[in-house]
Design a protein around this nucleic acid. Structure first.
Length: 287
DNA sequence: TGTATTTGACCCAG
DNA sequence: CTGGGTCAAATACA
């Protein structure tokens, strides 16, 4: 490993830290000012993209440089990119039981179903249930079956919220990074008028599986729906002009957008929006 | 016998 | 201190 290479790596990591500090600053600012403007949301997207670019760069720079030093440095940022047995490593690094409480996962969403075992196309393993305060019902906790074999850290909670008719609220935390992507027919249930899915071209070159062994399969969220799912948005079509997003999903008041991360494959972020979000601004063109 | 679920313990953020 | 998220041993099941 050349010394200048290590220096470059350190510099990129420093840039990534600065971007993360800026991201935190924006998040705090948005928390204090409850009104989010389209511009502030867009700025957050840009910062997220900067961080993703840094992470991609770090990933690429670490390739072919399996020296102890670079691996050690890299593992602090992307511990998932290591080819050791994940389950054993998880046991070693996750300290003691129950220590992973309230992971800082901002990507959450909910849905209400009439059955507790709604088929969302993924395989889940139940790992706990809990009596929740002020609720007569137990909350069930599930994790992705592929937590250890494919390092998918997605979890969901299912909590009954109504006796008659029976209703269950499912809260998802994070997105699947396992290869077991859901059946698009399930995701794009034509009877489900509560969600809207839009497809965008991705301006970011998608790495191949060979280039990135942890990359998920190409997105199955690529179908385009417009006219029939326009309950909550105008019947216009949003066109991506300069955002490196691959998918946008609109669900109630949450906008979810996907972007390609070279280490984890397709990742998603969500933003809350208010009504003026749909006014045209620099990021989007309304046809 | 291997896999899934149950359940009490553990831990930490608020 | 408490509520809630997770772990892991015990148990159930195929």
């Amino acid at each position: 490993m050349e010394e200048y290479h290590i220096k470059a790596m350190e510099e990129v990591m420093r840039g990534c830290e600065f971007a993360e500090q800026l991201q935190q600053l924006l998040l705090n600012n948005n928390t204090n000012n409850l009104m989010k403007t389209p511009t502030s949301i867009f700025v957050q997207h840009l910062v997220n993209n900067v961080i993703n670019s840094f992470n991609n760069t770090i990933f690429l720079m670490s390739k072919g440089n399996p020296s102890d030093q670079i691996q050690k440095e890299f593992s602090s940022i992307a511990p998932v990119v290591r080819s050791v047995d994940f389950k054993e490593n998880w046991k070693k690094t996750s300290a003691t039981r129950g220590c992973n409480k309230r992971r800082n996962i901002t990507q959450t969403w909910e849905k209400v179903t009439q059955t507790p075992t709604d088929d969302d196309g993924h395989q889940w393993r139940k790992y706990g249930k809990k009596k929740i305060n002020n609720s007569p019902y137990l909350r069930n906790y599930y994790r992705c079956t592929h937590k250890f074999d494919q390092r998918c850290l997605t979890t969901k909670h299912v909590h009954r919220i109504q006796q008659k008719p029976p209703l269950y609220k499912t809260t998802y935390y994070g997105h699947h990074t396992c290869g077991n992507l859901p059946n698009p027919d399930i995701i794009l249930d034509p009877n489900d008028t509560s969600s809207l899915l839009l497809s965008f071209n991705n301006t970011f070159p998608t790495p191949t599986k060979q280039e990135c062994p942890f990359l998920s399969s190409p997105s199955s969220f690529s179908s385009t729906h417009s006219e029939e799912y326009n309950d909550e948005v105008p019947s216009s079509t949003l066109v991506n002009t300069n955002l490196p997003c691959s998918d946008l999903t609109l669900h109630n008041s949450t906008l979810e957008y996907g972007h390609n991360d070279m280490m984890h494959g397709l990742l998603y972020d969500t933003v809350q929006f208010n009504d003026d979000f749909f006014q045209p601004f620099d990021g989007f063109v309304v046809e």
